[in-house]
């Protein structure tokens, strides 16, 4: 992920899943295929909407990127259009991760046992299920849920920073303090960022070193929270 993509994730312009890991077909289409570079003098440029050197590119030609995002799903949900929300989730689902989790939650909500049965086995084999466990608990914000999720995530070999961060969000003051200390030990830069961004502690400032990690984890948690 380059600095521009990090910035986009950080400011919520794109989803982390759109820039991390394998690319989806539409994003890959935006690139020049080196095997087709010699097909014509301007083959690559034309595909990206450019003419000859010096000409302004046509904006119409930039319509090939991902058209929809989780933001669209959440907007559809907020206006009560659950049919559109579920269509979008099906379209965006890559078979693992946050989108699959939300798709399963939407199927459960709609009583669609067929779709749920298709999704649950995938969620069960997700190597990063600790991440969803912690993000859901953090989104719910209940002390008891957070305590249980932290235990479960630790048993799933979750990184210490992730468990500590979630614990630091507990409404229980003692647990929150314990989480902050554990986070300080595991990742001081992230601890400072969580203190500034999540807990809004007086005088604290986010640390650039930890922004990427913060953005990726917080995005999932905040999306779950918004999904409800």
């Amino acid at each position: 992920m380059d600095w521009l993509e990090r910035a986009k994730v950080w400011f919520g312009v794109v989803d982390p899943e759109d820039v991390a890991g394998e690319e989806s077909a539409p994003r890959a289409e935006l690139r020049v295929d080196p095997r087709r570079r010699d097909e014509g003098e301007h083959a690559g440029a034309e595909r990206r909407g450019r003419g000859r050197a010096g000409e302004r590119p046509s904006l119409d030609a930039f319509a090939g990127g991902p058209k929809e995002s989780l933001e669209d799903c959440l907007v559809a949900r907020e206006r009560g259009d659950t049919v559109e929300m579920r269509r979008l989730l099906r379209e965006l689902d890559r078979g693992l991760g946050l989108r699959t989790l939300l798709r399963a939650a939407a199927a459960l909500e709609a009583g669609d046992e067929g779709e749920l049965a298709e999704l649950l086995p995938r969620l069960a084999v997700d190597e990063q299920s600790w991440r969803r466990t912690l993000q859901v608990a953090a989104a719910l914000g209940e002390a008891s849920e957070i305590a249980v999720a932290c235990e479960r995530a630790a048993s799933l070999d979750a990184p210490k920073w992730a468990v500590a961060w979630t614990r630091a969000l507990s409404p229980d003051a003692s647990e929150r303090r314990r989480g902050l200390v554990e986070l300080l030990v595991a990742d001081p830069a992230l601890a400072r960022t969580v203190a500034a961004r999540d807990l809004a502690l007086e005088g604290c400032e986010g640390d650039y070193e930890a922004f990427e990690r913060f953005a990726a984890f917080a995005y999932g948690r905040d999306t779950v929270r918004r999904f409800g």
């Binding site: 303090r177 902050l180 300080l184 400072r192 005088g203 604290c204 400032e205």
Partner: peptide, 15 residues
């Protein structure tokens, strides 16, 4: 007084 001890260590270390 107003800060818990751990909060002080979360402030910018240079200040």
């Amino acid at each position: 007084e107003r800060l818990e001890a751990v909060h002080v260590f979360l402030l910018p270390p240079s200040a």
